[in-house]
């Protein structure tokens, strides 16, 4: 794979022919579908085809301009990553058409877009299923069961990494991948479906989950929003998020996330209270102003009730140490005259 360094000054607005293959390994002859190259890695589908930006509806183009508007004037190339998610949300993967579309809208070369599209894991290079099932097989999840889950799933679905069981895009079709650390190690081993979490999985629970998906059901994730299709979630990653209540209110917080806070409440432990106003001149002498002993817990009746019956007792809400900053002087803010 050639490595294209696309500096901001090189090749901007280039429209000459012959830029289509930059940054991408090419082979002779027509490529009719993705294949495995000699090193076992996926090659880009249809990359030699010029790609037609016109296949996208006008509304997609207006979405693309909406993405560009998020960035400062003259810096619209920043929109490329979200825009690639956007074209993926239309076609289920990043096609030559999608690359041409991004290049066209951003007025950069297709080579520049292809170089980016082939760099990142989340841009899929061939048609993807209705559900992308990602099994974390990084060390921690892997050793706590993720490896077994992936092997069993691969076996039962009859597919390997980035391959799809069923007809891509059709209901119940499933693309399998093993993922790197998904930042949920306290829920290990984890599996995501279209990036929504299913925690503390076993071979059996994941097998059941996948069977449900194939049967047209959508089991609720352990944390996060109800499932949608891979195309729909790609659109959300592009920044067009689902603001419906059931999606936005999903807690995404389970017992491990709250383990420390719950234990602190159980033990009656808190952080030190903020210093009183008259204690503000003792900066640099840690331990003399306040400490755990003075950070007494004082429940505040005005506090919202916890959804988990675990009311939050913080030193900050201690009426004896009000944290209203309006009356603080500058010296107090720093703990000493600056």
């Amino acid at each position: 794979m050639t490595s294209t360094y696309d500096s901001p000054s090189s090749g901007l607005n280039q429209t000459a022919a012959g830029v289509d293959t930059g940054g991408v390994e090419t082979t002779t002859g027509p490529i009719s579908g993705a294949g495995l190259s000699s090193n076992g890695r996926l090659t880009l589908l249809d990359i030699e085809r010029p790609g037609d930006p016109g296949v996208f509806a006008e509304r997609v183009r207006s979405d693309a301009f909406e993405i560009m508007a998020r960035y400062p004037l003259g810096q619209t190339r920043s929109a490329l990553l979200p825009m690639l998610h956007l074209v993926q949300s239309e076609q289920g993967y990043v096609t030559a058409d999608g690359i041409a579309f991004c290049a066209d809208v951003l007025e950069i070369t297709k080579a520049q877009v292809a170089a980016v599209a082939t760099f990142y894991t989340m841009y899929k290079r061939r048609p993807t299923g209705e559900y992308l099932v990602s099994v974390c097989t990084n060390t921690l999840c892997g050793m706590l069961g993720g490896d077994d889950i992936y092997a069993a799933l691969s076996d039962s679905l009859g597919v390997g990494m980035n391959q799809t069981a069923g007809i891509p895009g059709e209901p119940g079709s499933i693309t399998l991948e093993h993922a790197e650390c998904l930042a949920a190690c306290d829920y290990a081993p984890v599996v995501t479906v279209n990036y929504e979490f299913f925690d503390n999985q076993t071979v059996e629970s994941t097998s059941e989950l996948v069977s449900q998906l194939q049967a047209g059901n959508r089991p609720l994730p352990t944390r996060g929003a109800p499932l949608c299709s891979f195309k729909e979630i790609s659109r959300q990653i592009a920044g067009f998020v689902d603001t419906r209540a059931e999606a936005s209110a999903a807690t995404a917080s389970g017992a491990p996330t709250e383990a420390g806070v719950r234990l602190a409440i159980e033990r009656g432990e808190t952080a030190p209270a903020y210093p009183h106003d008259d204690a503000g001149t003792t900066a640099g002498t840690p331990g003399t102003t306040t400490g755990p002993a003075t950070g007494a817990v004082t429940p505040d009746s005005a506090q919202p009730t916890s959804a988990h019956d675990a009311p939050l007792n913080t030193a900050e809400s201690d009426p004896a140490a009000p944290a209203t900053g309006a009356s603080h002087t500058q010296g107090e803010l720093f703990g000493k005259e600056s």
């Binding site: 209110a249 917080s253 996330t257 709250e258 420390g260 806070v261 719950r262 234990l263 602190a264 033990r267 432990e269 808190t270 952080a271 030190p272 755990p292 506090q303 919202p304 009730t305 916890s306 959804a307 988990h308 675990a310 009311p311 939050l312 913080t314 900050e316």
Partner: peptide, 16 residues
């Protein structure tokens, strides 16, 4: 050593 929730102090409260 005590636990000292500061950054996590709102975890578990009502839709913080």
């Amino acid at each position: 050593m005590p636990l000292t929730p500061v950054l996590t102090k709102r975890f578990g409260t009502n839709a913080p």
